[in-house]
Design a protein around this nucleic acid. Sequence first.
RNA 1: GGGCGAAUAGCUCAGCGGUUCAGAGCGCCUGCCUUACACGCAGGAUGUCGGGGGUUCGAAUCCCUCUUCGCCCA
Length: 941
Amino acid sequence: MPDTRSLAPQFDPAAVETAVYQRWVDAGVFAPDDDADAEPYVIVIPPPNVTDRLHMGHGLNNTIQDLLIRFERMRGRKALWLPGTDHAGIATQNVVERLIAKEGKRRQDLGRDAFVERVWTYVHETGGTILEQLKAIGSSCDWGRTRFTLDETYSRAVRHVFVALYRDGLIYRGYRVIHWCPRCHTALSDEEAEFRDTEGKLYHVRYRIAGDAAEQKAGSTAEETAEETAGAAGGAEGAEGAARQGGSGADASAVPPFRRSAEWLTVATTRPETMFGDVAVVHHPEDERYAGLAGTMVEIPLSGVRIPVATSSVVERDFGTGLLKVTPAHDANDFEIARMIDPDGEMPGIMTADATMADVARVPADLRGLDRFEARRRIVEQLEAQGLLEKVEPHPHSIRHCYRCGTVVEPRLSDQWFVRMQPLADPALAAYRAGELTFVPERWGAVYEHWLTEIRDWNISRQLWWGHRIPAWYCDVEGCGHITVAETAPSTCERCGGAVRQDEDVLDTWFSSWLWPFATFGWPDATEDLARYYPGHTLVTAPDIIFFWVARMVMGGYHFLGKRPFDTVFLTGIVRDTQHRKMSKSLGNGIDPLEVVRGYGADALRYTVLTGAAIGTDVLLDPADLETSFAAGRNFANKLWNVGRFILTNLAPGTPDLSAVDPQTFELADRWILSRCQATIAETTVALERYRLNEAVGALYHFVWDELADWYVEQVKPRLYGDVPGGDVAPAVLAHVFGTVLRLLHPAMPFVTEELWGALPGTHEPVLAGARWPQADDGLRDEEADARFALVQDLVGAVRNIRAEYGVAPGRTVRTFVRPATLDTAEGCNAEQRTIERLARIETLTQGHAPSGVGAHAVLRDGSAVFVPLGDAIDVARECARLRDEVARIETQLAAVVRTLENERFLAKAPADVVARERAKESSWREQRATLAEKLRVLGC
RNA sequence: GGGCGAAUAGCUCAGCGGUUCAGAGCGCCUGCCUUACACGCAGGAUGUCGGGGGUUCGAAUCCCUCUUCGCCCA
């Protein structure tokens, strides 16, 4: 703890933060008293990826959580902030794969067990990093309850859920087209395959009509056509040959563009490389352009494979040519169409897991092994050479990319595990509609609702090694084929007793994350913690994981525990740079929060993100200019520090508690600051309760700087220095007000407040983090003092303004005359004469009529006249101009008020208090105008 | 294609139908090292609140529309 007498003139965050944090840990304030008879308040942290390093997103998010948990802790609730990390399947596996790649190895070289072991080693070495970094920004998590999504107990919950859902028929194995990342080599959920706008092309490709009609027209036979395409498949030379032969059937170059000829149909596609997997060409049944074509066979260009023309009502007639090629193994929509046309039809795959062209009969030999995009380029060349490419149009569209590595996703037909979501979504939707779940800001509720309404089944299997292995075992016995799903590994098939082998895949990371609000408390066991701390209260997270995480936690909470996991979802903004780009590692536009902590202090970081985080707005920071972003917070912490330094060094050891001071001995300024202090308590508390965090911090900033420091501390100096009597009262008031400020500011800026708290004399809780939140004392609210002191401030301001305007040297004092228009000004001047004189550098403040002579004039808001005789310093013309400007300003205001008050309908319809306020304004403006008019007359303007 | 958000001072943004409501911080200008703080003090300048229309006694605030930018979903 700091020595009261030796506080440094500048707050040095680096010198105190570690020790302050240790003080909290030693005091044990982060762990709730489990047995306390208090209402719990629970936040579960959005577990950062175990390999993550702290970035500003974490900085924002965790500052908000810490502020909320500290606030409720001080309000006496049993506050638990549960920390932990997520194993982050793909992300972590990718990190370690990159590591071993530096050794020239792939995970396959190590084998599954060795690779997973390697990941564990990595996690054990570096996994605690982000949690340590959270401490640097002051996070008051209950570290004793830290969880990891791959902990044994947590894994048990994951298996339990899988088995339970499987037995309820809510998990099933399905053969579907899923999103496949050819780089990560795994399936992805819909949410993990992000749309990105892309400048694509729409290729209009001619599919030759096979059969009699074409033969008559083209004078060729089906056999010949097949030979042609066989030649085309023979490589570059073959392609040229095919091009030449194309001319033998019809002069391609002479044919005008058309949708349909007797010889071919033109199909528009964005992905020509998939055409070898086509099983049909379809058009809308009512599309007259293609009437009567159904059943006709056409040939896939370059391969010559024959496929039928069919109809489907899902085809958009206006898109492309109205003809759609159906590639069931490489497009989810096409898969559905193909199943409708022919449920038993073949669904040929023509690409490998790497998204290269497969070595299969349907793919022309010269294209096999090529990357899909290279294949597309070659195919387009060949089509063009053969006159089969009618045209190419630019086609901007959105295509899906892997959310982890950015690779274009390849739709792929495969066996995967799915969760049937509708039955889980219904209660989550109903609960939201019943008001059991509140989103802040509210609009995100609509996003949540829309997603749940349109929910689709969730692909949860991932072809990775790092994660929860799927607890399903396949029986290899001929004719059995049973799948045993169990929490613990079976030794044999539960049906036939045969040998079993476990599914190779792991579960989607989010399949464990969605259990976070209760699996962290030991569920499915009925633990004491679960009873105490579930359901939780506030979830703080970014809106981009509403689907991934938030909605699924709600579904899981209701399904498995019958209760919501939290009552409020607070969605933060996103941290962006000045070009509004999301801060990210890849863009290199990030700000390292630890660098900010080093340079400006954790409190400054917190101050900046809190003031920048008005509800629902993104936080914009300039990575190139930390000073602009963080100086304000640093300066404010330093201001508070210096107010503290002033107060603490001036408090006598025997400073009485405020309650021991006779209120009769309060001066006007004491009454005023105590009154303002109560208002600030109320304002801050309400703002925090409403999640208006920036307003809470703003109110405190204003109170500390503009009221306490600028006015009260200045007012009190003569009393503290013993120049005037009343030396006991002021310290008591200062101690009370400053102690209150430290409490109020603690959730936002815990370090500087705690450090100052340690130096605060008197009896109080030993650790501020464990201190109680102030209660506003309405007995100290004092409207009269508010009004009178406001006029004192007004008067000082008026004189300062005059001094500056006329360039009065700072050291020179002036005489000032004030003619009070109201009792408030008269009493304010009586009570605070010395303060006014000192702060405005007035030699003597005299009440009454101004003497004759040349001087500067001003008018206070209540119409009180102020006169500062300045003799030669005054340029009368300039003074006249100054006053006329002032009159003009007042006239404008007055005119507006008069207009309002002359409006009959306003008087009839507006509430009485509003009308009264307008009348008060009117009289105020009139007073001021009258005063100024007189001044102008006196000056002879 | 559907939805959401934003547009206010040079910059970043608050502003919740009615407080002297057109604001804060930063930046800028002037003057001050006044024994808590130069990370400070005092004073000052800067705006068609994106355009247009409407509702209302009253609109930066609510509604409609247009423009520009951003995000989400399909």
